[in-house]
Structure formats: structure tokens, C-alpha cells
Amino acid sequence: MTKRQKRMAAIAALLLGLGLAAALGFTAFRKNMMYFYTPSDLLANAAPLGAKLRLGGLVERGSLRHGEGLRVDFTLADCEHRVPVHYEGILPDLFREGQGIVATGSLQPGGVFVADEVLAKHDENYMPPQVAQSLKGKNGQHSCAPFKPVTPGGAAS
């Protein structure tokens, strides 16, 4: 092998090794790379009661109730399951029924998820209001696809 071919082989080996290490690392720590859990994960008992976690899903249509002051109650759903959420605080501008959100908080003994922060998670579709109006065929709900369960059994159970 010439020196040049040796360098070429060394770089190929370096990239291959790095790629392999990254793939293995990310497979092993897949859960840690997830930003949020879904209602399916919660109901599959993926998280202990009272543990702080983020919960992502769609605010179910017709579930939003405004309480006293800044208190709100709503239901958060992924494609399979739903969890009641209670929150007191300022909501982002994009918060509305049918919208994706990520709430930080913990699951309480009664099965209610009490949140202390709510962030909106919008999707990658952009359109003017008229187009959105004409597309609002079914129920105007956003896709639940981005809210995939983290745990393998999350969706099935």
C-alpha cells in the first residue's frame, strides 16, 4: 500500500468506527434521546407515579375546560390513548384544541397528569387560512403521528 492508500484506509476506518459507535450508542440510549413520553407510555406504566417527565400529545377536541384564573383542564391524546391533564399557568399562543403540545409534570395517584409547563409543538405544514379551512374536512385535528410511544409495549397495551 502506498502512503496515500494508507491514509485513505485510515479515514475510511475512522468514519466506519465512528458510525458504528454512534449507532450502537444511540440504540442503547434511545430512551434518553426522547424528548417526551406519550399517553400510551404512561398507561403502560413506563413511568413511576410522581416522577417528573414530559408528556406529548394532541389536546383533544372538546376537552378544554377553563377553571379559575389560569387553571385549565384538558385531555392529551396520542394515536391510541388519552390522559387527563391539569395545568395552571400561561399557555403558549399556539395552544388550542387539536394542537400538539408537550407538558412537563408528573402523574398523580388519581390518574391525572399535573403539569407545571406547557409548550406547543406545531407541525411542519404551513398554509394560508383559506387553504386550512378547505382542508378542515374531518375534524381539523392535527396528525397524531409525531407522538410515537417511547416504550415498545406503549402502543400495544
Binding site: 424528548y35 417526551f36 409548550l119 406545531h122 407541525d123 411542519e124 409525531p146 410515537k148 417511547v150
Partner: peptide, 9 residues
């Protein structure tokens, strides 16, 4: 992974 950031447009 799931993220707060949306997918690619």
C-alpha cells in the same frame, strides 16, 4: 427520536 422541533418541511 421524538422532539419539540417539527419535522422537515
Amino acid at each position: 427520536w421524538n422532539s419539540l422541533h417539527q419535522g422537515s418541511t
